[in-house]
Structures are given as C-alpha cells and as structure tokens.
Simulated assay, not measured.
Amino acid sequence: MTVDVRVCFLGDSFVAGVGDPQHLGWAGRLAAHSHTRGQALTGCNLGVRRDTSTDVLARWRAECAPRLPSGCRSGIVLSCGVDDTTLDGPTGRGAPRVAPDVSTANLAALLQQFPTAARSILVVGPPPVDDEEQNERIADLDAAHPGAEGYQVLTALVLPDWQTFSAGLQTYPSRP
C-alpha cells in the first residue's frame, strides 16, 4: 500500500519559483529530489508573488485544509519575509511593508496554528536578494529573483533539512 504523503509549500514568490525558466524553484526541486530517491509525496506549491507574512497568515488555513486531509502524512514548508522587508511607496523609499515586530509575530502565530493541519513543519528563512539594504532588513528578521542556478543553490542549502523533514513524513503516523 502506498503511503499518502502531502506537503504544502507556503509563502511568497521565492516559494513559487518566480524567475526560474524551469518553473521549479527550490520547492519543486526538493519535491523532485524526494521522488528520485523513492520517497513518493504530493507537493502543493502555494507560493504567491508579493505575499507578506500577514498575507500568508490570512490565507494558509483555507489553502492547506483541502490539500492536507486527515488520514494523510502531512507537512508544511514555510518561507516568507522578503516581501515583509520590501519598502512601500512609489520610489521604494517608504516603510517596510510589514514592521519587523509584526513579521515575527506572524511567524509565531503560524507556528502555533500549523500543528492543526500538519504533523511536521519546516521553516526556510528568507533568502538574500540583489539589494544590500534590503538584505540588511531581511537579516534583521532572521527585488530580484534568482534564475535556475540561483534556485539550485537555494535547494542545496535547504536539502539537508529537507531530507530529514521528508524522511520523517514517511514514518510519522497519519493525522487522524
């Protein structure tokens, strides 16, 4: 009997793989890696361009609930924060879209709420972008999207934790 393993990749445009001509991004590459190693899973990419942690907090339950039903081995991979640090305004010189304290509170709220939907959770910190000032704002929390090579680098950075996460999904009991 095949084990029903499902993972929702939740977050922003980096999760969606924007800028990757292969349309895989790091999330698709991680799911493909598991498949090539014989770990069957259904990966649901729920990355939305320009979504902040506030947006993710507002939508996660409605989007994950139908994709992570009871009876499956479920996981959520969360990555957001770059859009939180993006400066608002027509010149890009306004305030960050989400204040740092709100951004961290959103992450805390997500981590408190996720166990109702998933047995396992993996948080992937926001990646650096091609803007040093924004990278400083991103670093305070923990632009330009990478191409296929950049997403491959991100995949390699996340891969060790992904392997532990996905292997655990294969053995954790299904959600009731």
Rank of each mutant, 00 (worst) to 15 (best):
Pro21Lys: 05
His23Asp: 12
His23Phe: 10
Leu24Trp: 04
Gly28His: 02
Gly28Trp: 04
Leu30Phe: 05
Ala31Asn: 05
Ser34Leu: 01
Thr36Ile: 09
Thr36Arg: 15
Gly38Asp: 02
Gln39Pro: 01
Gln39Glu: 12
Ala40Gln: 08
Ala40Val: 10
Leu41Glu: 04
Thr42Val: 15
Gly43Phe: 00
Cys44Gln: 13
Cys44Val: 13
Cys44Asn: 13
Asn45Glu: 04
Leu46His: 07
Gly47Trp: 00
Arg49Gly: 08
Arg50Asn: 14
Asp51Tyr: 09
Thr52Tyr: 06
Leu57Lys: 09
Trp60Tyr: 12
Arg61Gln: 15
Glu63Tyr: 07
Ala65Cys: 07
Pro66Ser: 09
Arg67Cys: 03
Arg67Ile: 02
Leu68Glu: 03
Ser70Arg: 15
Cys72Leu: 03
Cys72Ala: 14
Ser74Thr: 15
Ser74Ile: 08
Ile76Gln: 02
Gly81Gln: 03
Val82Cys: 04
Thr86Ala: 14
Leu87Arg: 15
Gly89Ser: 06
Pro90Gln: 11
Pro90Cys: 10
Thr91Asn: 14
Thr91Trp: 14
Gly92Glu: 00
Arg93Tyr: 04
Pro96Ser: 09
Pro96His: 05
Arg97Glu: 01
Asp101Lys: 09
Ser103Gly: 11
Ala105Phe: 00
Ala105Glu: 05
Leu107Ala: 08
Ala109Lys: 10
Leu110Glu: 04
Leu111His: 14
Gln113Ser: 14
Gln113Val: 01
Thr116Asn: 10
Ala118Leu: 02
Ala118Met: 01
Arg119Glu: 13
Ile121Arg: 13
Val123His: 14
Val123Ile: 10
Val124Phe: 05
Val124Ile: 14
Gly125Arg: 14
Pro126Glu: 00
Pro127Gly: 03
Asp130Leu: 11
Asp130Met: 06
Asp131Leu: 06
Glu133Cys: 08
Glu133Trp: 06
Gln134Ala: 07
Ala139Leu: 04
Asp140Trp: 11
Asp140Thr: 15
Leu141Val: 10
Asp142Phe: 07
Ala143Asp: 12
His145Pro: 02
His145Trp: 12
Gly147His: 01
Ala148Asp: 12
Ala148Pro: 09
Glu149Arg: 12
Gly150Phe: 07
Tyr151Trp: 00
Tyr151Ala: 04
Gln152Gly: 15
Val153Asn: 04
Leu154Gln: 12
Thr155Val: 03
Ala156Leu: 12
Ala156Trp: 08
Ala156Ser: 12
Ala156Pro: 00
Leu157Lys: 13
Leu157Gly: 15
Val158Ala: 04
Val158Ile: 15
Val158Phe: 10
Trp162Met: 09
Gln163Cys: 13
